[in-house]
Amino acid sequence: MDYTVYLHDSGILEWKINRPEKRNAINFNVIHGLEKALEIAEDDPKVKAFVITGEGETAFCSGGDLDEFHLLKTKEDAYAMLSKMGKILFRLATLDKPTLALINGTAVGGGCELAAACDFRIAKKGSKLGFIQGNLGITTGWGGASLLFERIPVHSALKMLMEAKTYYAEELIEEGFIQFVFSEVNSDSAHQFFKEMIMKDVNVLKCYKQSIISKWEENHLQERMNQEIRNCAVLWERDTHHQAVEKFRNK
């Protein structure tokens, strides 16, 4: 199974990408698994918080699986995949319960977009993170840039996106993208972070979350994410992207 989902007695629903041999890259099975986990998080009244992490000690998520997604050549093919994942990340961002990216290792490309869709991010010491899509001749394709602009100051977000380089988790605390860094991160870390929140009535948590969702409705977050995805699909079709992907895969 490419993913696991587990509801702790505390009310924390933990979803884990289980592809350590692929640095927890996202393929179509993982996309389906995140959809199923969100259904549980939305519908099960016992769920008070949702945590996303990766298996192993090396990678949280290395983004989209290039071995699988490189088969998508046209902007139409790319848009079908990109928009599907974009809708899921919008759904994650607007889940009416607190969400946490438990970053247990490298988070790059789409892995950073996944983390940006969460309300909070805590990371293992020394983890590297970066929106590196620009190095492959494309932009963020799942709405991650629009989400990042909601998380940290605009000038910092724009610099991260345009430079397309990686940063240590410790550096990103100052920018506000990472909330805490731990020597190790695991389920206990998630419980420690959520300790005070999950003691509250879930309806209190939902009301606070709805406040920020209302803000995003007013500033058209979903429409901005959709435009971002369309832009990426156009770039995806270009030879510049396909050549960069082949070069990366042949390293």
Rank of each mutant, 00 (worst) to 15 (best):
residue 18 N to Q: 13
residue 96 D to M: 09
residue 113 E to R: 05
residue 103 I to W: 03
residue 119 D to C: 13
residue 69 F to V: 03
residue 115 A to S: 13
residue 10 S to A: 08
residue 141 G to Y: 12
residue 142 W to D: 04
residue 10 S to W: 10
residue 149 F to N: 05
residue 59 A to E: 08
residue 235 L to T: 09
residue 167 Y to C: 05
residue 166 T to P: 13
residue 166 T to G: 12
residue 175 E to N: 12
residue 229 I to G: 01
residue 40 I to N: 03
residue 85 M to V: 13
residue 29 N to F: 09
residue 51 V to P: 00
residue 188 D to L: 13
residue 101 A to E: 11
residue 11 G to P: 04
residue 215 K to F: 12
residue 215 K to H: 12
residue 100 L to P: 09
residue 44 D to C: 08
residue 33 G to D: 01
residue 246 E to S: 05
residue 240 T to D: 14
residue 80 A to F: 09
residue 216 W to Q: 05
residue 218 E to R: 07
residue 245 V to N: 03
residue 57 E to H: 05
residue 148 L to M: 11
residue 147 L to R: 00
residue 185 V to P: 03
residue 11 G to A: 10
residue 173 I to F: 02
residue 164 A to G: 10
residue 45 P to K: 11
residue 60 F to T: 07
residue 5 V to R: 11
residue 42 E to M: 03
residue 156 S to K: 15
residue 236 W to Q: 03
residue 107 A to S: 15
residue 17 I to H: 01
residue 83 S to E: 12
residue 197 M to V: 04
residue 62 S to W: 11
residue 100 L to R: 10
residue 249 R to V: 14
residue 151 R to G: 06
residue 231 N to L: 11
residue 199 M to H: 13
residue 41 A to H: 09
residue 185 V to D: 04
residue 235 L to H: 09
residue 5 V to H: 07
residue 31 I to D: 04
residue 69 F to E: 00
residue 151 R to E: 13
residue 205 L to C: 09
residue 115 A to Q: 07
residue 1 M to D: 15
residue 48 K to L: 10
residue 34 L to K: 01
residue 167 Y to N: 03
residue 219 N to P: 00
residue 209 K to S: 06
residue 246 E to Y: 06
residue 126 G to N: 08
residue 161 L to R: 00
residue 133 Q to G: 01
residue 236 W to A: 02
residue 242 H to V: 09
residue 132 I to L: 13
residue 159 K to I: 09
residue 205 L to K: 02
residue 172 L to T: 02
residue 73 K to R: 07
residue 91 R to W: 13
residue 20 P to Y: 03
residue 138 I to T: 14
residue 204 V to Y: 12
residue 134 G to D: 12
residue 229 I to V: 11
residue 168 Y to N: 14
residue 143 G to L: 05
residue 112 C to W: 00
residue 97 K to P: 02
residue 137 G to R: 08
residue 234 V to Q: 11
residue 107 A to D: 07
residue 76 E to N: 07
residue 21 E to R: 06
residue 6 Y to F: 13
residue 94 T to H: 07
residue 124 K to A: 02
residue 90 F to G: 00
residue 5 V to Q: 12
residue 32 H to G: 06
residue 152 I to V: 14
residue 131 F to L: 08
residue 236 W to H: 09
residue 47 V to A: 10
residue 111 G to C: 05
residue 18 N to E: 15
residue 146 S to W: 04
residue 187 S to M: 12
residue 155 H to T: 10
residue 15 W to G: 03
residue 103 I to N: 00
residue 210 Q to S: 06
residue 193 F to D: 00
residue 118 C to Y: 12
residue 12 I to F: 02
residue 43 D to K: 14
residue 236 W to C: 01
residue 35 E to C: 08
residue 76 E to M: 05
residue 189 S to A: 14
residue 32 H to C: 08
residue 194 F to P: 01
residue 240 T to C: 05
residue 79 Y to W: 08
residue 214 S to C: 05
residue 81 M to H: 11
